[in-house]
Design a protein around this nucleic acid. Structure first.
Lengths: 209, 209
DNA sequence: CTGAAATAGGCAATAAATTGCCGACACCAG
DNA sequence: CTGGTGTCGGCAATTTATTGCCTATTTCAG
């Protein structure tokens, strides 16, 4: 299946067996995979082509995963990063999560679990959402408070819409907001319900998480 | 400014020896400590009195620390929470950090380290901005849109204040907001400039509600 | 086809936020 | 002490947001 909305992830691990196995698995599930066996290579790939998310081993021979993540964030400030590791210590995990990791998996990796995580990324960073996240989160300086708050509000509403499959009444209940207010906000913030729900029909529209 | 105990933390652990020892240590460092030996008691304390931050064991006989944290957040959505545990598994740590934990310490607790963490909390969630952000959109859905947006706005203002060392005029420029508006927001959101700029020295506690 | 349910938008009353202007207070250098 | 700077809050005019009421449109089951 060729899907225009499929994700491309950057998979980083020094163990080529693991790299190959996971890459194969993900590709059979319509996820584009770019592999790299070192942090150095990974950073190159990150600059060469479009990557939607990073899945990386925490422990690698030369540069460790955290260091790599920091470098990666310099290029792509808010790219979602998923770590995995076989012998993670608590401080490592804490550091990774503080960096804003979306998930931290243990080796050996359960492919289905990884797939679930990636699908979650697919949803929360979908299309217009990604732009919004950048708007309110990445550019720490230079944007007025009001604009950033509005961008966040837009992001929250779009997320809720996606999570409820475009079902407005559910969103109203979830966000506990007046129906008229929500409509006005969506109009003002340029949120198109139709566009959002059309986006998700191809993949999983329900994050059963 | 009141020079007495400016910060009150809620310390939760089923091990009474640990509870007593840490409480004593913290009290000698001018930190108010309310102790609870169970999640149930802790939730009561949380409603009875003003608590600035929670320090809790992850593993407790009856209810686990995560469950407790979720309940605590229902009462105090953005209260800083520090976890500690002796036998933490990776998924536990990940879950705790996703909940927006400020820090995750390992048992046995190094008192000085805990003190350092608490002092970071004292200047209002300093440091791990990413973690803080996760606390917003990683937090369970179920909080009204308005509350979440306000929480984010509060976070933005506090961050900017910290970043500019409490210089209001710099914050005004950075956030491009009217001075009168910023003052009003700070007042409404319970942001105390004095408390934020008081560096490692004790400042005012903030009755953040 | 018909009617119920879900969604969207117009309009107007009400509530809240924004902002300029004024004065007050603290602090510091001269 | 005095004047300058930075901060804070009261007040009121203006703007914006919220929300209830009403109607239109679409969708879908019967």
């Amino acid at each position: 299946m060729d899907k225009s909305d499929s994700l491309t992830i950057l998979l980083v691990d020094d163990d080529l067996d693991v790299l190959g196995a996971i890459a194969r698995f993900l590709r059979t599930h319509d996820i584009g995979v770019v592999v790299a066996e070192s942090a150095h290579t990974a950073l190159q790939r990150l600059q060469e082509q479009h990557i939607d998310a990073i899945v990386t081993d925490l422990r690698m021979p030369k540069s460790n995963g955290l260091q790599f993540a920091v470098s990666a964030r310099e290029t792509r400030p808010l790219i979602p990063i998923v770590f995995f590791s076989g012998y993670a210590q608590v401080p490592d995990v804490v550091a990774a999560m503080k960096l804003g990791a979306v998930e931290f998996l243990e080796k050996p990796i359960d492919p289905d679990e990884l797939l679930k995580v990636i699908n979650r990324v697919r949803i929360s960073h979908h299309g217009t959402l990604t732009t919004q996240r950048l708007a309110f989160d990445g550019l720490d300086q230079g944007y007025p408070l009001k604009m950033r708050v509005l961008a966040y509000e837009k992001y929250l509403i779009e997320s809720s819409l996606l999570q409820h499959g475009g079902h407005i009444s559910s969103v109203l209940e979830s966000l506990q907001v007046n129906r008229r207010t929500l409509n006005d906000k969506m109009s003002k913030l340029g949120i198109k319900r139709d566009a959002l729900i059309a986006d998700t029909v191809a993949g999983n529209s329900k994050p059963a998480d």
